[in-house]
Computed example of a mutant assay.
Amino acid sequence: MRSLGGFATMTASAASSQFGAAVGAHAFATIGPAGVVAVRQLVAAAVLLPMARPNLRSFTWAQWWPTIALGLVFATMNLSLYTAVDRIGLGLAVTLEVLGPLAVALGGSRTRRDALFVLIAAVGVYVLVLPGPSSDYVGIGAGLLAAACWAAYILLNSLVGARLPGLQAPAAATAMSATLYVPVAVLLVLHGKLTGMSIVYAIGAGLFCSVVPYAVDVIALRKVPARLFGLAMSVHPVLAALAGLILLGERLDVHHWAGILLVVTANALAVTCSKWPGSPTVQREM
């Protein structure tokens, strides 16, 4: 029952993330993906910094460099994901992004079983995008870049988790990422775009994509195994597709749903059969 409750809680967290992404997408026309990311990162930093209170002056270089790398990953991951959402839709973008955790779960494996998972995922991606002259390769590339960033995020979090206590590294990295987007926010303010519903949607993305999932996961993930966390993460593409349908009017074709199902299946099998690096508490997109 405890594991079932933890899984349900993390599924609710995933639903919050995808709902927030759909809410943020409503601001793309006014402030663009970069504007939404800027506000989202500022909101996340405003929550994490007072909570973690990282002692930056005491950081050594061995602690600083992975924290800096993590901040760059945050900045790139969110922008690439939202660019993909803007171009190819929420469901497809998140499905491609989930390939990152899948790659980490299967990294270094040489077994036939894991090779089968890779094949299932590859077929799923092909069915999902059906490459052709009309394909949005920029959007697909942005989704794959987000996947690479999520993989790097997991590995870096495993590293900083061993070198810094608590949430000091994620908080410092989030603040760095937010700082990189301050010029974007300033330009939007100067042009009078960061007002009205655009700022409401962007703040909503920050709350539902970062603050709410973090508050939920920090409790639930301490009580469940990493593999159960990975299994819960596998529902993100399905929830993203549903959020896109309900909130954005994104209707997917049969081949899209088939591709999502194949990628979700591959990821669910991989994370339940493979060993994840690090603690489950850090396998979270900020």
Rank of each mutant, 00 (worst) to 15 (best):
A270T: 06
A45H: 09
S234E: 07
A12L: 12
R2E: 15
R87V: 05
L242C: 14
G139D: 03
Y137H: 07
H191R: 12
A27K: 05
L164I: 04
G35N: 00
H26Q: 09
I260V: 15
R40W: 01
S158M: 11
V39G: 02
A121Y: 04
V36A: 06
A84N: 10
A46H: 06
C273W: 11
A151E: 02
A232P: 02
A29H: 06
V235F: 08
S234W: 08
T11R: 04
W65K: 02
Y201C: 03
A84G: 12
D217F: 03
V118R: 04
P183V: 00
A38W: 09
W64P: 01
R2S: 01
T111Y: 12
V235W: 04
A178I: 00
A148S: 07
T67W: 07
I88T: 12
G32I: 06
L164M: 08
A34H: 13
G132Y: 13
L106S: 14
A142G: 01
L72K: 04
W65L: 07
L269M: 04
P165C: 10
L130V: 10
G32F: 14
A185W: 10
F117Y: 12
G35K: 00
G124P: 03
I120H: 02
V94P: 07
Q168S: 09
L42N: 06
H256F: 09
G32T: 10
G230S: 09
M197G: 13
L119C: 13
A75L: 10
G107L: 11
T281V: 11
V282N: 14
L70P: 02
F229D: 10
F59H: 05
V43H: 04
F7A: 02
Y137N: 14
L90D: 05
E285K: 15
L187G: 14
T179S: 02
